[in-house]
């Protein structure tokens, strides 16, 4: 679980989960007809790492490969037994999505899966919706 409390004391808060709050600021809230609404064209927002399970060849192959690497005898948080692959990936851990606390072993699997996913992205030209647009 990651809990992102409201910003304190007038600070701007971190960027973690920023988009999750901004989508509410932009899409929800009271609208009064008499007031003009600012055009949202060209909106500058932070879109954080989104993961979409798309029914695509890429996804199928990625899942197949990930399953092949999983140790089916172990629980989801057990050591997946992939020491040769662990530590070869640094990019996966740097993704913007805020994760809850999970064990290092599970994280290792995640990194491997991430690696597979990134390769898939490279080959497919990025068919999945993984965006990171930041400005200002």
């Amino acid at each position: 679980m990651s809990v992102v409390p409201a910003p304190q004391g007038g600070g701007a808060g971190g960027t973690s989960g920023l988009y999750d709050v901004l989508e509410l600021v932009l899409d929800r809230g009271l609208v009064i007809d008499a007031f003009v609404r600012v055009s949202l064209v060209g909106i500058e927002i932070l879109k954080i790492d989104v993961r979409v399970v798309v029914a695509s060849v890429d996804t199928y192959l990625r899942f197949a490969e990930a399953c092949n690497r999983l140790d089916l005898e172990a629980g989801p948080h057990k050591n997946p037994g992939l020491p040769d692959l662990v530590g070869t990936v640094t990019e996966g851990g740097a993704r913007g999505r805020t994760k809850g606390a999970i064990s290092g072993a599970a994280q290792s699997v995640k990194d491997v899966v991430q690696q597979v996913r990134d390769r898939g992205d490279g080959q497919s030209g990025g068919s999945r919706s993984r965006k990171k647009e930041e400005s200002e």
């Binding site: 929800r28 009064i32 609404r37």
Partner: peptide, 24 residues
């Protein structure tokens, strides 16, 4: 956008407030 959110959070600590959508 952050300023809008911050103002509502600060005011909301002291009083019930109906938040406007951004850009009104």
């Amino acid at each position: 956008l952050l300023a809008h959110q911050r103002v509502l959070t600060e005011v909301g600590r002291r009083a019930t407030v109906l938040p406007m959508r951004f850009g009104s």
